[in-house]
Computed example of a mutant assay.
Amino acid sequence: MVIDHINIYLGNVLHLPLWVSLLGRFVAPLFIFFIIEGFYYTHSRQKYFLRLFVGGVLMYGINLLSNILMNNTTNPYTKQFDVFYLFQGQNIFMTLALVLLWIWILDTMIVNHLHIARYTMLIIALVVIMPFIIISEGGPYELVMGLIFYLFRGNFKRISMGVTIFSILLFVHALMTYFGQVEVGSLYQTLTFDDEYMMITVLPFIYLYNGQRGGNGQKWQKNLFYYFYPIHLIIIYILSNIF
């Protein structure tokens, strides 16, 4: 993850090769995998969601401040202020929170015998949340991964098939982008830019998962990522502005 973020913001300065972007494509799917695992293991799904959601709101604030201070609020095409660019930046917290909420609602519909009125309300909730997932960081891809990990949980063979098929479709899409459009660069440039097909590299890590919690259960280990994620991005944002 750190390498991926360094590549995004400092890759040109460090003259990193284009293939570096491929190295981190397993990270977000692995986060999603453990979000689904956490969905079943957590003592409170509500607190689990709120931790991620609050982290997402915090990251929006950090991105907002960073873009204002660095004057990254102008659309490079229209040369005008764009509110979307005001909040641009990394925010996997919000993606994880929204995917968790979507899966939670879906699970409620599948597991429980609901009255038609509540069932309808939950379907509406799924539809309402969908656009927010689509515009979140990697949202469409991670939602598909979340569905695969949720529906096939505990069955590595089916998870492998689902992830492989999805990755092949994304690879075909990348090829279609290259062969179907003009001035998109070389095939190498296209495949290292439209590179979500490399999410297939998450499979070895899932295979090695033994279903046990890592570490010794201390609170700092549980909360480490919640602190590390924003801190390392703040440092990278500052370095990006300096260089």
Score class of each variant (00 low, 15 high):
V111D: 07
I32L: 00
Q189F: 07
Y141T: 04
Y119L: 14
H43I: 13
Y227W: 11
L52D: 00
P131M: 07
Y150A: 08
L10W: 06
G211Q: 05
Y85E: 10
T164R: 00
L65I: 15
G185L: 06
V111R: 14
A117Y: 09
Q88I: 11
W220A: 04
Y119E: 13
N67G: 02
Y237Q: 07
Y237K: 12
L22Q: 06
L58F: 15
Q80M: 15
F84V: 13
F156G: 01
I148F: 02
Y188S: 12
Y9I: 04
S21C: 03
V127L: 15
E137M: 04
L122T: 10
I206R: 12
H113L: 00
F84I: 13
L233V: 09
F31Q: 00
A117N: 13
V202W: 01
M1G: 10
F228Y: 08
L187M: 12
P131Q: 01
A28C: 04
F49A: 09
I68D: 01
I105D: 10
L224N: 00
T201Y: 06
K47S: 13
I206C: 09
R118W: 12
V2C: 11
L58G: 05
Q80G: 13
A174P: 06
P17W: 08
Q221R: 10
F53T: 07
N155G: 05
F152S: 12
Y188D: 08
G162C: 06
N12M: 03
Q212D: 01
F33D: 04
V202M: 08
L58N: 07
I134E: 11
N91Q: 01
Y77N: 13
V127A: 15
F31M: 01
N63Q: 05
